[in-house]
Simulated scan of single mutants.
Amino acid sequence: MSLVTKLNNEMKQAMKNKDKDTLSVIRMVKASLQNESIKLGKSDLSEDEELTVLSRELKQRKDSLQEFKSAGRDDLVDKLETEINVLQEYMPKQLSDDELEAIVQETIQETGASSKSDMGKVMGAIMPKVKGKADGGKVNQFVLKHLN
């Protein structure tokens, strides 16, 4: 089932349940997907492109969450946490630390990296493999750990 179809079904269910929070997040995701398809000049996005949009939306909310927490805006923190939880339902299963570490080690061997100066080469090779399945900051930490 495509993401748009799933979103449409979930939107209908949220309307029936009068779940305004979920409904607003689903509408926002659908709008973002529509904007991306217009930007790319396509009628349908690939699964990878849909994942990119979802990841971008999730990252924006996580960044905002940190800002609101540091500013003491608990009202907005609660709202964003709800949005993040809804968005994460549509994301692929996240990799465990062990799985991520194995991918990092494998990629370092594939690229022949040996020092921090090879960081860009390793990150460029890893990110397509873990797209949507791991946070970029976490990947960065594992790569730094193994390039020392």
Rank of each mutant, 00 (worst) to 15 (best):
2 S>T: 14
2 S>C: 11
4 V>S: 10
6 K>A: 09
7 L>G: 02
9 N>L: 13
11 M>L: 15
12 K>D: 15
12 K>P: 08
19 D>P: 03
19 D>R: 00
19 D>H: 03
20 K>W: 08
20 K>S: 14
20 K>E: 15
21 D>S: 02
21 D>Q: 04
22 T>M: 03
22 T>W: 03
24 S>G: 11
24 S>Q: 11
28 M>A: 05
30 K>N: 11
33 L>I: 11
35 N>K: 13
39 K>C: 06
40 L>D: 02
40 L>N: 14
41 G>N: 05
41 G>C: 04
44 D>F: 11
46 S>N: 06
50 E>L: 03
51 L>W: 10
51 L>R: 12
51 L>H: 10
53 V>A: 04
54 L>H: 12
55 S>M: 13
56 R>Q: 12
61 R>K: 15
61 R>D: 15
61 R>T: 09
64 S>M: 09
65 L>Q: 02
65 L>I: 05
66 Q>C: 04
68 F>R: 10
68 F>D: 08
69 K>E: 13
71 A>D: 03
78 D>H: 11
78 D>N: 13
80 L>F: 08
82 T>Y: 07
85 N>D: 15
86 V>R: 08
87 L>M: 11
89 E>G: 14
92 P>L: 06
92 P>H: 09
92 P>N: 03
93 K>D: 14
94 Q>K: 13
95 L>K: 07
97 D>I: 09
97 D>F: 06
100 L>Q: 01
103 I>R: 00
104 V>K: 05
104 V>R: 02
104 V>I: 14
105 Q>K: 15
106 E>R: 09
107 T>K: 03
110 E>L: 14
110 E>A: 12
111 T>P: 07
112 G>V: 06
112 G>Y: 02
113 A>L: 01
117 S>R: 13
117 S>L: 06
118 D>I: 01
122 V>M: 02
122 V>Y: 00
123 M>T: 07
125 A>Y: 03
127 M>Y: 02
129 K>F: 01
130 V>E: 01
131 K>A: 10
132 G>S: 10
133 K>V: 08
133 K>H: 14
135 D>Q: 06
141 Q>I: 14
144 L>V: 13
145 K>V: 07
145 K>P: 03
146 H>M: 03
146 H>K: 04
146 H>R: 07
147 L>T: 09
148 N>H: 10
148 N>T: 15
